[in-house]
Write a protein that binds this DNA or RNA. Structure first.
Lengths: 343, 343
DNA sequence: CATGCTTCTGTGAGCGTTCACAGTAGAGAA
DNA sequence: TTCTCTACTGTGAACGCTCACAGAAGCATG
């Protein structure tokens, strides 16, 4: 435990020092450092002891210089950053990725590409090989950065299915469609038959899939889809409020609403209450995300939980595999219905 | 704009390639890269053109290997992470630091040291010189990590004044005392004379300073400090609620409360309303932080805004200066009174 | 003319690793 | 014995850059 680094910040020990201390060669120390194959138990032990005694830590720059790897990955956030940073799910994602990477001793570089300038700088930085791979989080997919990185051959894992990149790029996503199906089935199971939907933006996979799930379940249940019950939203609270108003106007007999995000659902609740409808007695409301907005709402929202902790873990796993040479892969994770008071 | 990197991922150009292309030596290219002193305009231009033509990007590992610098800094978060990630101010801080660093082309490594194990690993990583400096965010100060890093001579800037490290470590903080003074003065200016306070945890500088500001202003105004008007809190909403109840019991004639955080202030509002006191008519309430909780509360909170955007910018400035050889420095930034409906 | 100073340029060395290769030693087979 | 195979070890050569130094050229000064 003596760090032998008392006082004035000396030159840190190198692999050479360790080799001398252990009475072996650089090569042997290096082999121990890199998995210990073809090393005798005696040498193994001597080297480990020497490392402990000298407090040696590998110089990653020297290693990277020769291996060409950087042993670090970037966490890239493109587009309007405020929105992401305010999203608690994003925080879970960032924290999860950091921790999962830390378990592999891989540092995470946080990169924000808000402006066009930053995007260029960061793309350049990444394609120059300063990171081995990128965890990509972008809101509206079909991101030009993603395409550039893919073209440059940089290992890449997106959060959520990117639009328009085919199966060339890995991604990890929650099963939006299945989550939507669960929720709509739940609403039907409550005896509701006039189930409306406030969709997400239909240029995002999430928006599309959640709507598709809605349509599927109604179809399977033999309930005709009334297009007056389908109104668009953009995930914002305000759009939820507007959506509910439109729904009430177009189909006053609505008795349940599946809302594609909790934030919108808050708006829906407000509009319904203003219109004198009781929730859940008159109209049942189902959200999506299980964000804090869900418990902050009154009544508390029944919603769909996305497994953000697993998503981050999977993103890291897939990325590291890809850096290791594996092919791109898509991972879809199941969601969970969280029953509270609104339905 | 032709990246000349079409197709199969070739070996990236080195400084050698640029030198040959420009018809000069490695040394000259290197000089251009590092500020361009002692380089003729002609050579300067030739090198820049060659860089553009080849798409050269410096290999940071090779550079770091020889300079001993890593040209990156760590953003270190110690202790309970959930609390931080849920704090929007923290998000502003993280984003601000990332952007300020990006302006200097310095990548930020996000490091979370929740467990003892992680702390050891990260301390080791940092002291091994893998980052040039550390931006430290820890809740309860007097952090052992801070002391270790300081002892190891790692440039360090803390967010908020660290307790017990004397003036040996740089920090950037909002002027808690002055913010508290502003708020209490404001409450007095409304004609209130029985001004209570719910303090923050008194093992944090913020908690101590805000209380000190409260006492000072009352003293200056010639209002005797009644200790029954001073109740402790821990920044949590629940502790605000409990604090208000205690206040009402000990000093029923209280006509204003300075609460050391917005979250606690939410609790205070709830307790006051439950007790039948109107805000701000019967009791004026002032918060601290200007967090989203402030506008989410009803009535909306009058509060003290901390300049988080400037704090992050200053932290980066001080850290880079320190890495450049400057001595540690403390920066105190002014706060701002935000008047809303609660006072 | 020598001397010094300033501005600019090229060269060799070396940063701390890993990797390829060339050994060496011991075991088993011919 | 001699050969081959396996397990292990040491050594030189990179990797791409910066730094110190040496030198060249230009110009003023003694």
């Amino acid at each position: 435990m003596t760090m032998s680094n008392t006082g004035g910040r000396r030159r840190p020990p190198t692999i050479h020092d360790v080799a001398r201390e252990a009475g072996v060669s650089r090569g042997t120390v290096s082999r121990v450092l890199n998995g210990g194959h073809y090393v005798s138990p005696a040498a193994q032990e001597a080297v480990n002891a020497a490392i402990r005694r000298t407090g040696y830590v590998v110089n990653r720059h020297a290693r990277s210089l020769i291996t060409g790897r950087s042993d670090s990955v970037g966490f890239l956030l493109t587009e309007p950053q405020e929105r992401f940073f305010e999203d608690p799910n994003f925080n879970v994602l960032l924290r999860g990725c950091t921790q999962a990477l830390a378990a592999h001793d891989v540092p995470l570089l946080l990169m924000l590409a808000g402006t066009e300038d930053e995007r260029r700088r960061i793309t350049r930085y990444i394609t120059a090989g300063h990171v081995d791979g990128v965890l990509l989080v972008s809101s509206h997919s079909g991101d030009p950065v993603a395409e550039e990185l893919r073209a440059a051959g940089v290992p890449l894992v997106a959060c959520g299915k990117p639009i328009g990149l085919g199966s060339k790029v890995s991604y990890v996503a929650a099963d939006d469609r299945d989550g939507a199906r669960d929720m709509v089935r739940h609403l039907l199971s409550l005896g509701r038959r006039r189930v409306g939907v406030v969709t997400g933006p239909l240029d995002t996979p999430g928006g599309v899939e959640r709507l598709a799930g809605y349509r599927e379940v109604l179809g399977e249940a033999g309930v005709a889809v009334d297009e007056r019950l389908v109104v668009p939203g953009d995930y914002s609270r305000a759009s939820g409020e507007a959506g509910a108003e439109r729904l009430l106007a177009q189909a006053p007999d609505v008795d349940a609403v599946f809302v594609a995000s909790d934030l919108m659902a808050q708006g829906v609740l407000a509009a319904l209450q203003r219109a004198g409808r009781r929730v859940p007695e008159d109209v049942a409301v189902g959200g999506f995300d299980d964000s804090p907005a869900a418990v902050a709402a009154s009544p508390e929202l029944t919603t769909i939980r996305q497994p953000w902790d697993r998503i981050s873990a999977e993103m890291v796993r897939v990325l590291l595999a890809q850096i290791g040479g594996d092919d791109p892969a898509a991972v879809i994770l199941p969601t969970e219905l969280v029953k509270r008071d609104s339905a």
